[in-house]
């Protein structure tokens, strides 16, 4: 597959790693891309480490095997980095995006990853904009800022449509999420 981007999401059960993968995948389809988005199925418990994946390309993706060498790894919970090897399979030119209050130097020091690191305090952004520290939507914003996978506005429009269906009676949730995505995107772009 030419120009295929593979993304691995790490999170803990309840943080929305699977939702992040599906939201991004669906938005990419609506932006004219071919995608696959799928979670890793194992024991599903609140707080347990979980993973989800995206494949995004300009042509049909026929591979139906797990992602083993992602171009981007997004970590929704930095405490996972002590428990599992989040950079497994990530090539030297890959990108590691971490939700953390620490700065880049601190993350680089604590973990042996020598490639590109993007840090974002997605939980803080989510708390401030949505009112809950659920980091998945701002993490997508950070990922779009770091990768140029698709235009921010296209993702915002698509997510808005989707959230409008789900949160008809809670416009503040919709506004909060869109704000969180934009804010994280801008912070990474800075």
């Amino acid at each position: 597959m030419k120009n295929m981007v593979e993304i691995r999401w790490h999170g803990r059960g309840g943080q929305g790693a699977k939702t992040a993968a599906l939201l991004l995948g669906e938005a990419a389809v609506n932006a004219g891309k071919y995608v696959q988005a799928f979670p890793e199925y194992g024991p599903e418990r609140m707080g347990a480490p979980v993973a989800a994946y995206d494949r995004i390309a300009d042509e049909e993706i026929t591979i139906h095997s797990p992602v083993i060498a992602p171009n981007v790894v997004a970590v929704l919970d930095e405490t996972l980095m002590d428990a599992i090897d989040v950079t497994k399979g990530l090539p030297a030119n890959g990108t590691l995006i971490v939700n953390t209050p620490f700065d880049k130097a601190e993350v680089e020091k604590r973990f042996s990853w020598k490639g590109k690191v993007v840090v974002i305090d997605a939980s803080k952004i989510a708390q401030a904009t949505i009112g809950k520290p659920i980091p998945n939507t701002p993490m997508i914003g950070a990922l779009l800022g770091a990768t140029n996978l698709m235009p921010l506005q296209a993702f915002l429009d698509d997510t808005k449509k989707k959230l409008e269906k789900k949160f008809k009676t809670k416009p503040e949730v919709i506004e909060g999420n869109l704000k969180a995505i934009s804010q994280a995107y801008e912070e990474v772009k800075k």
Binding site: L22, G25, E26, V29, K33, Y34, V35, Q36, A37, F38, P39, Y41, E60, I61, H64
Partner: peptide, 12 residues
Amino acid sequence: TDGFIISHGMER
């Protein structure tokens, strides 16, 4: 369809 691989994998 193939369980999980297709049944739970989102595609275009």
